[in-house]
Simulated scan of single mutants.
Amino acid sequence: MNVVQCRMALAGLGWSVEDLAREAGVPIDALLRFDSGEVVPPGIYAALRDTLQDAGIIFEDDGQLVEGGPGVRLHRSHVDEGKRPEELSSANDG
């Protein structure tokens, strides 16, 4: 994960840097240092990356799926689409 991927992940999740720091359990100043391009301790980096992955972010390497450099995408989650029309009846009308 690089800084741009981290920013894209936050945008995709609708999180602020404060949200990520809280969820990852890292000091906000450490996250801000990472965001400014500074090297952070491996444990901080791992906590940030793991938290984003646990939230559904998938990090793509350069050229992995599309041209143009590293990126991110959101994991497809199972969405309950409810009952299909052919499954509806007065017995399950709630």
Rank of each mutant, 00 (worst) to 15 (best):
V79L: 11
E81R: 12
G94W: 04
G71S: 15
A30I: 04
E60R: 13
H78L: 11
G37W: 11
R84S: 11
D19G: 03
V72S: 02
S36C: 14
V39P: 00
R33P: 07
S36Y: 12
R73T: 06
R33L: 14
D62A: 15
F34M: 10
L20T: 06
A91S: 04
L10I: 05
V39T: 12
G63H: 14
A46Q: 10
Q64S: 13
G12E: 04
G63Q: 12
E60V: 12
G68A: 08
H75S: 12
N2F: 08
F59N: 00
N2H: 10
V72A: 03
W15Y: 07
V72I: 15
D61R: 15
G94R: 01
I58T: 12
N2K: 13
A24D: 05
F59G: 00
D80V: 04
G56W: 01
A91R: 06
K83Q: 08
L48Y: 02
G63V: 13
G12Y: 01
P42R: 09
G63M: 14
V4I: 15
R22D: 10
G68Q: 07
K83Y: 11
T51G: 04
V66A: 13
L31D: 03
G25L: 06
G25P: 06
R76F: 03
A21K: 07
I58W: 07
Q64M: 14
D93N: 05
Q64L: 10
I28D: 11
E38F: 13
I44K: 06
W15D: 01
A21M: 11
A91Q: 05
L32G: 11
I44A: 05
A55P: 00
R49C: 06
A21W: 06
A11C: 06
A46L: 10
A55E: 06
V40K: 03
D35T: 13
F59R: 00
G82V: 02
R73D: 01
G71E: 07
A9P: 04
P42W: 04
N92P: 00
H75D: 07
G82M: 02
Q64R: 10
E87Y: 01
C6H: 09
I28A: 13
F34H: 14
P27S: 13
P41Y: 00
R76T: 09
D62C: 15
A24K: 05
D54N: 13
G37H: 11
A46R: 09
D80L: 03
A21F: 08
S90I: 10
Q5R: 08
E23R: 15
V39E: 13
R7G: 10
E86T: 07
